[in-house]
Design a binder for these strands. Structure first.
Length: 582
RNA sequence: GCGCCGAUAGUGUAGCGGUUAUCACUAGGCGUUGCCAACGCCUAAACUCGGGUUCGAUUCCCGAUCGGCGCACCA
């Protein structure tokens, strides 16, 4: 078994990840998070909130998972997310119908499915494999479609990303943030894509969890006030140039921005925060890189895009996060489709003074003379330059193909000094988009170690205490009342403190240690006869397998400190060297 | 979607056209002054589903589902 299989098998057996609907034969692309997987996921999401909500002052919202059609027309998912397909009637091979006519029609995207099919028939295009006849063209859309309400009045789609929830709430979010930039909203939630062939477990799902932030910034100033905090952090940048060379380059974020490798501070800052977050949940730094999208790979509207990629055994480098500068693409698209202004009025530090020509046509005279055309004449007059008005000669205008003359007396004008206090700006969007399920799988993969102890394989998930679904195991040395009663008291005390604690009496003590190693429990507390005689318990560390004796009354405090990373096992008490009994 | 391969207790497996489907680990119970999957006794647990061939199918055939790999797809 390779590591991938070992990790998957462990995750299934121990209750992290289960293929969904197994009782009814299952369905590809759906997974359940089991009793250990769900808390692992929850804890990772909470750390994400720590980084992208609390620390940054961003707003977390929750939008419906079903969206109405208009959203996805504007976002481009309805057209861009669906492909016209055709299949061979002989060999059943499936093709992109628009690809087959590319050499005949330059922009097949503009054609309807019927038109593409007509084109295929007229040009007698057959199956590229076997020459067989092709079926009519049908649409495959990656979005799940559903009906809203009875009848077929309203079409709904399960959202293919959470991002749109933030974009379409832009006006209310802007008001919530008191009409000023920058601000950001985030969402953690399910997204749905009807993948053609989901594979590789939790890496490509039909229902998955995304954590996305949409950070709205002033397009004229892409610096970041907190950039200094991350400028000295070193990371491996796999830039466009580095990809040409085939080797990632290590440097600080400050250097990356200075050299123009990352487009600007704001993007670099959130790449850095992403980096910190990934390390905080237990992604291995030596199996993590940030790869810049190549020019042809980047969405046409994106200014710059960096993917966090992790190395997974057998699967290679897998994208788990994308951080992109999406510019004003999304807001512009929704503004156009909804006909709602989605810009922000940005105040200048100092009002700018500017002289402005105000033209006042004399409508009392123009009205009777030009009747219905008077309005158009007025507009034409207002559009004239000061030079034309000042000349004192007859003003010639062409209105609806007719040349008319107006004496200058009918137009008055003056130069006014006006103060400009700001301008309308469509914000640009920095979007960090996290695939939570992929991150969870990565944490499992990168935490997994199998070492040899006394000739036996010991499987360990080296979870960081901050993500471990079980933080402490309380174990009576044996299942006897005199030991289990004090152990249960400790269990209750630790649970009262809010720790995630498991209690286990089955089998031998060694077996229980190993069982807890396998599910990544960082510490075990063992109640033994010394507890009764000397008032001590044993704390055992998962990674080093070291044990220390600690006074019973200190155990909760010491565990709190150890889980918080403030106390190391060897400093927690008297080291015990366990002797193996023959 | 297409092609190739596979599917037996929780896990890994053996096996057969016909008795009670093999083994190990795991899991549960009891005992054990016992400290890194210790030991003893006891217990539980499986032929993916549907159809066909056959007196009889877990075994052979077809299909479905799920999984692995390759192709295609991957905003």
């Amino acid at each position: 078994m390779d590591k991938n299989e070992l990790v998957n098998e462990l995750a299934r057996r121990r209750g992290f990840l289960w293929p969904a609907f197994e009782l009814y034969g299952g369905a590809a692309g759906f997974y359940d998070y089991g009793p250990l997987g769900a808390p692992l996921k929850r804890r990772i999401e909470d750390i994400w909130r720590q980084y992208f909500v609390i620390s940054e002052g961003f707003a977390e919202i929750e939008a419906p998972t079903i969206g109405v059609e208009g959203i996805y027309q504007a976002s481009g998912h309805l057209s861009g997310f669906s492909d016209p397909l055709t299949s061979c009637k002989e060999c059943k091979e499936v093709y992109r119908a628009d690809h087959l006519i590319k050499h005949i029609i330059e922009v097949p995207d503009a054609l309807s499915n019927d038109e593409i099919y007509k084109c295929i028939q007229e040009n007698e295009i057959g199956c590229p494999e076997c020459g067989g006849e092709l079926s009519s063209v049908y649409e495959f859309n990656l979005m799940f479609k559903t009906m809203i309400g009875p009848g077929n009045k309203m079409t709904g789609y399960l959202r293919p990303e959470t991002a749109q929830g933030m974009f379409i709430n832009f006006p209310r979010l802007l008001r919530y943030f008191r009409d000023s930039l920058p601000f950001a909203a985030v969402q953690i939630g399910k997204s749905f894509r009807n993948e053609i062939s989901p594979r590789q477990g939790v890496i490509r799902l039909r229902e998955f969890t995304q954590a996305e932030a949409e950070i709205f910034i002033d397009p004229r100033d892409k610096s970041h006030p907190r950039f200094a905090e991350v400028a000295d952090i070193k990371m491996k940048f796999y830039s466009q140039a580095a990809q040409e060379r085939g080797e990632a380059e290590e440097m600080t974020f400050g250097e990356a921005v200075e050299r123009g490798i990352v487009a600007h501070q704001a993007l670099a800052y959130y790449v850095a925060r992403t980096y910190q977050f990934l390390l905080a949940v237990g992604v291995a730094p030596d199996k993590l890189r940030f790869r810049q999208h190549k020019v042809d790979e980047m969405a046409h509207y994106a200014a710059d895009c960096w993917d966090a990629e992790v190395f997974l055994d057998r699967l290679g480098w897998i994208e788990i996060v994308g951080v992109a500068d999406r510019t004003d693409f999304d807001l512009k698209a929704h503004a156009q489709a909804s006909k709602v202004n989605l810009s922000v009025f940005v105040h200048y530090d100092q009002p700018v003074k500017r002289s402005k020509m105000v033209v006042k046509p004399d409508f009392k005279a123009l009205g009777p003379r030009f009747k219905a055309k008077a309005k158009a004449v007025g507009e034409a007059l207002k559009a004239l330059s000061p030079e034309e008005l000042k000349s004192g000669e007859m003003i010639r205008l062409t209105i609806e193909g007719e040349t008319i003359e107006i004496e200058p007396a009918l137009v008055s004008f003056e130069s006014v000094e006006e103060e400009i206090r700001g301008e309308e700006v469509i914000p640009h969007v920095i979007e960090p988009s996290f695939g939570i399920d992929r991150i969870i799988y990565t944490v499992l993969d990168h935490s997994f170690y199998a070492d040899e102890v006394d000739g036996e394989t010991r499987a360990v998930l080296r979870f960081l205490p901050a993500v471990a679904p079980i933080e402490v195991a309380v174990l009576p040395l044996m299942d006897r009342k005199e030991l289990s009663d004090p152990a249960k008291a400790i269990l209750q005390e630790l649970r009262t403190r809010g720790m995630r604690v498991d209690y286990d009496t089955s089998g031998s003590i060694g077996r229980r240690y190993r069982r807890n190693d396998e599910i990544g429990t960082p510490f075990a507390v063992t109640v033994d006869y010394d507890t009764l005689e000397q008032g001590t318990v044993t704390i055992r560390d998962r990674d080093s397998m070291q044990q220390v004796k600690v006074p019973r009354w200190q155990v909760a405090d010491k565990l709190t400190a150890m889980l918080g990373g403030l106390l190391k096992i060897q400093d927690a008490g008297d080291l015990v060297m366990p002797g193996k009994k023959e």
